[in-house]
């Protein structure tokens, strides 16, 4: 199987701070690969190294079979990058943003014009084509940034926190576009701290924490491996002492505002808790998610 990205013992230091501490990653052609982790886990630093805009401190890194430090321009010609914060050209119109970006890649003016029309369609921005960028909504700007990253028909698309700061509707629209890209065979690498995003989009992912990889696998595998089928969430009066319920579940996590009981059958566990005379003010049974995987691996929640 062909690997578009191969990292071995990859490290990145900023002064005395180690942002990435020796990670091994392989991204296969055609898959959607995720870096899941909280802010400061080293996801963005890794992405910047893959995008050839940040040198590595140690280890090996190959992108499209080339060395980012020597072949930066050549690699960048074949990848697309969607940065965490939109950096659209505010002095140009929506269409010009796409056209001039194509020119940066060395495409002919004719190619740029045609490509812009196609991408405006893809980003559902055709009716805004000749307007300024600034008044666009957050979701529209994000779609334009993604459209811009596709101008060179990249084999590999890097998306850094693609839906952070967007409302739910805009997120779903964006996910739909990304899903189409995946269907078209574009390899995606996504960083996110939203587990629902990772579950929606990623075939395979690594959980990062403190610059290291804590686990690797498909979302389903990770949940199977590190969590139970269901989770029972119990809420108590603020300030009230939380009862010891260890014996009712395989594992119990104590969060500031609630207890999480990991179990194969949530309703059954809840009944036993009630039998025992414990009366939470609120209870909820749900399926395990990547959030639980993360909690298990690091002892912390993802979004705090």
């Amino acid at each position: 199987m062909e690997h578009l990205v191969e990292a071995k013992a990859l490290t990145k230091h900023f002064g005395t701070f180690a942002a990435v501490r020796g990670i091994d990653v392989e991204v296969r052609r055609g898959e959607a690969f995720g870096f899941l982790g909280p802010n400061g886990a080293g996801k963005s630093s890794t992405m910047r190294m893959i995008a050839c805009v940040s040198g590595r401190t140690g280890g090996e890194l190959k992108v499209l079979g080339m060395d980012p430090e020597r072949d930066g321009p050549r690699i960048r010609a074949r990848i697309g990058v969607v940065p965490q914060l939109d950096n659209l050209d505010l002095e140009l119109t929506v269409r010009q943003n796409l056209q001039i970006y194509g020119r940066y890649f060395g495409m002919s003016r004719q190619q740029c014009r045609e490509k812009a029309v196609e991408l405006l369609e893809f980003a559902q921005l055709s009716d805004r084509a000749d307007q300024e960028v600034e008044p666009l909504s957050g979701g529209m700007k994000r779609r334009l940034t993604i459209a811009r990253s596709l101008v060179n028909d990249p084999e590999l698309l890097l998306l850094d926190e693609p839906t952070t700061g967007l409302d739910p509707q805009a997120r779903h629209l964006l996910w739909d576009r990304l899903f189409r890209l995946k269907q078209d065979g574009v390899t995606l690498i996504i960083t996110t701290h939203y587990m629902d995003e990772a579950e929606q989009l990623c075939d395979r992912l690594v959980v990062m924490d403190g610059g290291r990889i804590a686990a690797e696998g498909s979302p389903g595998e990770l949940i199977n491996r590190y969590s139970t089928k269901e989770v029972l969430e119990l809420r108590f009066q603020p300030g009230a002492e939380k009862p010891d319920l260890e014996r009712f579940a395989e594992r119990v996590e104590v969060l500031p505002d609630r207890l999480l009981l990991y179990t194969q059958d949530g309703e059954h566990t809840l009944a036993k808790v009630h039998e025992h005379g414990v009366q939470p003010i609120q209870s909820l049974v749900r399926r395990s998610s990547l959030e639980d995987v993360f909690l298990r691996l690091t002892g912390r929640t993802l979004v705090d």
Partner: peptide, 13 residues
């Protein structure tokens, strides 16, 4: 404007 960041995602150096 972070214009140059955007340019460095292309073959430009």
């Amino acid at each position: 404007a972070k214009l140059y960041d955007a340019m460095l995602a292309t073959p430009m150096g």
